[in-house]
């Protein structure tokens, strides 16, 4: 029994640690990880399927800022990350693959406005 403990200790000295030195080192995030949304306004057809399927009503179809309204005249999805449960149903339902969930999961913020993902930002 005592020898068993010694073997365990020696083994652990040479074992790779389970943790990494975050934020200097990062664990590789799998491709399917459901993180922040990436939206492509140019391919969006404004069908609103993403807003209808969202279980948390986190997606709202909104108009773009007035200076861009000539180029993008319809309504486009605006995601509230504070409400989002990251289920990726919007990604599944989008007929044009305009909305995708990326591997980025760094959302910590002090400003509530940072949690809103606008379809396009005015320059």
């Amino acid at each position: 029994m005592k020898l068993g403990i010694v073997i365990e200790v020696v083994k652990n000295v040479f074992t790779k640690p389970m943790t990494v030195l975050f934020p200097f080192e990062k664990i590789e995030i799998p491709e399917r990880n459901r993180g922040e949304h990436e939206f492509n306004i140019d391919t969006c057809i404004s069908c609103g399927a993403c807003a209808r399927i969202c279980p948390n009503l986190a997606i709202e179809m909104v108009e773009v800022p007035s200076e861009l309204r000539e180029k993008y005249p319809k309504t486009y999805p605006q995601v509230d990350l504070g409400k989002c449960c990251f289920c990726a149903l919007c990604e599944d339902t989008c007929p044009k693959e305009s909305i995708k969930l990326t591997t980025n999961f760094y959302f910590a913020t002090f400003d509530k406005d940072d949690t809103i993902l606008y379809p396009v930002k005015a320059e």
Binding site: N33, R34, C85, F86
Partner: peptide, 21 residues
Amino acid sequence: NLITGGRVYPAGYICPGGVRK
């Protein structure tokens, strides 16, 4: 996480009609 995209919550990976991916 590799399979479902979430460590704890699979977000309905096992869905009606099969599995999502």
